[in-house]
Design a protein around this nucleic acid. Structure first.
Lengths: 297, 297
DNA sequence: GCTCTACTGTGAGGAAATCTAACAATGGCC
DNA sequence: GGCCATTGTTAGATTTCCTCACAGTAGAGC
């Protein structure tokens, strides 16, 4: 086969994502960069091919004829590349990995996203422990730990997964009118030993209309599930509520969010060179969060 | 379509080229970078996929099973991308462009490679002027000039196309034995007013066995064609002889080459913003030589 | 009309990926 | 053994890419 003159690949990828999502911003989100980066890349590609690919009209765009021509083959091309790499036979990674994570994160996020991981590594055996116990952070039978905190766990390696943004959530039928007045008497659902509601109410003036009483649930998970059950307004966050918001099971009546003082961290001993299974799971958790779309403003 | 997680594209491209050419060095050549760069990229890719792709054995390599698996789909994928971009409908560029270049370069290289250019821009009308005249460098009816020299043409913009390496060439039937002794009495073909043979003979001791007489041809082109005609040994170079060497019409009895004191340069006035046709041809010539392109200003 | 919000565009400067250069190591070939 | 072509490796230079901060535009709601 003859030498090929390939155009700038990253520019192609940026254009493909933008054209496919019909949005620069959403493409940027998908690629994990800012919209400026995507915009620059598309300009680069246009300069390279010598044609406009987007027909810009103020704050949005359409594809030009040339852009339309490019989209389909580019998508198939990138699909081929992605599939080739994903379906690569890797040396089978087998073994047991124990992950301890807060119950809400375990049940609402972890169990719903391990599917892809196990598809690629069918010989992994995962042990998920829903727990907030500080003892597990240094337990010898726990390989990886996710905890909500300040990132300081002496003697352990820790990596921030994401910032945590707090905002009220409830079942859509409690908020049918789209008017927050409807929520005035709705009970506030609180997790035990948590001051998230107080933080949010102290920061967001619009919250003053919420004059309903409070229910106390055992933990964050129970609080969220109570909201799904329609018991009232829970204080959700961008990680544990992501799925429910995407599926429409929960909604956000207030656009205002508050950056939580703590974050989720992935903690481990940093000494599993001999445990590829652990490394693989750790890597996968880290990557899952890098690609996550920030829901909160 | 769902968000795709794409591996590092440049690493994929490097691997694909190396796997296809079965050589890191040749891949590097194809991509226009050093072999070190390709080696790095492949390492990166291997780290990303978590598997060895090359089975290295000292100074060469074989593909691993995983590497074999990757090659075919990657090649098709990149083909799709390349084809998509190439067959893009561009705004038709039409117009006349006059290119003045040394006769040898015109006849032996230029005319054989404009095909691709005209395929993409069928409305271009090229005027090729085989000439070495210094007057044409500043002639107003010449848009682009290729000249052999030191790069200094006052009042013009010039860009180096490539270094020039000199080496003897001849028809393969003069050198059937593979023994340079066979060439002892073969005439040396010289271009008028050129000291290329003297330079080479002064630098390469092995040349001392060449004791044949000299024929003087009018210019470089005539000298090369005389070699094709079997008249003797010509002093060729990596640009004008490239095609003949690839096709086997000419061979290089001596591996030794000498870097010529001058190079080929592309010279123009740098003021054709209103002449897209000129910009396109200039760009294409530069890219053919694997030169970076400072977007025509 | 105005304001607010959600987009995209752009330039400068910094971060990160990529490349080069120079040298080391390997193995085939004479 | 020496020679040569190849690949690997490292540090440092270079280019590319991205972010940030701000600007401009259009639509929605008032």
């Amino acid at each position: 086969m003859a030498a090929r003159r390939l155009p700038p690949l990253n520019a192609l990828r940026a254009f493909e994502a933008a054209a496919r999502r019909r949005s620069i911003s959403r493409a940027a989100e998908e690629l994990g960069v800012t919209h400026g980066a995507v915009s620059h890349q598309i300009r680069t590609l246009e300069a390279f091919v010598g044609t406009d690919l987007l027909e810009r009209a103020g704050n949005r765009f359409k594809l030009t004829v040339a852009g339309e021509q490019l989209l389909a083959p580019l998508s198939s091309g990138f699909d081929l590349l992605a599939t080739a790499v994903i379906s690569l036979d890797r040396p089978s990674v087998r073994g047991d990995v124990t992950v301890s994570a807060p119950p809400a994160l375990t049940c609402l996020w972890l169990v719903k996203t391990v599917g892809d991981l196990l598809k690629q590594y069918p010989d992994l055996r995962l042990h998920l422990r829903p727990s907030n116990s500080p003892k597990e952070v240094i337990a010898s039978d726990v390989d990886l730990c996710i905890r909500y905190g300040d990132g300081i766990w002496p003697g352990r390696r820790s990596e921030r997964l994401t910032d945590s943004d707090l905002f009220p959530v409830c079942r859509p039928d409690l908020f049918e009118s789209g008017d927050i007045g409807e929520l005035a008497d709705t009970p506030l659902l609180c997790a035990a030993n948590s001051h998230e509601w107080d933080l949010w109410l102290a920061t967001v003036p619009q919250g003053s209309i919420l004059t309903g009483g409070r229910h106390y649930l055992g933990n964050h998970l129970a609080m969220i599930e109570a909201a799904v059950g329609g018991l009232g307004l829970a204080m959700g966050d961008n990680v544990t509520c992501q799925r429910y918001l995407e599926s429409g099971t929960l909604v956000r009546p207030f656009p205002e969010s508050v950056r939580a003082p703590a974050s989720f961290f992935l903690i481990d001993a940093g000494d599993h060179e001999r445990r590829p299974a652990v490394t693989v799971v750790r890597q996968w958790i880290l990557e899952s969060f890098n690609r996550k779309t920030a829901l909160a403003a």
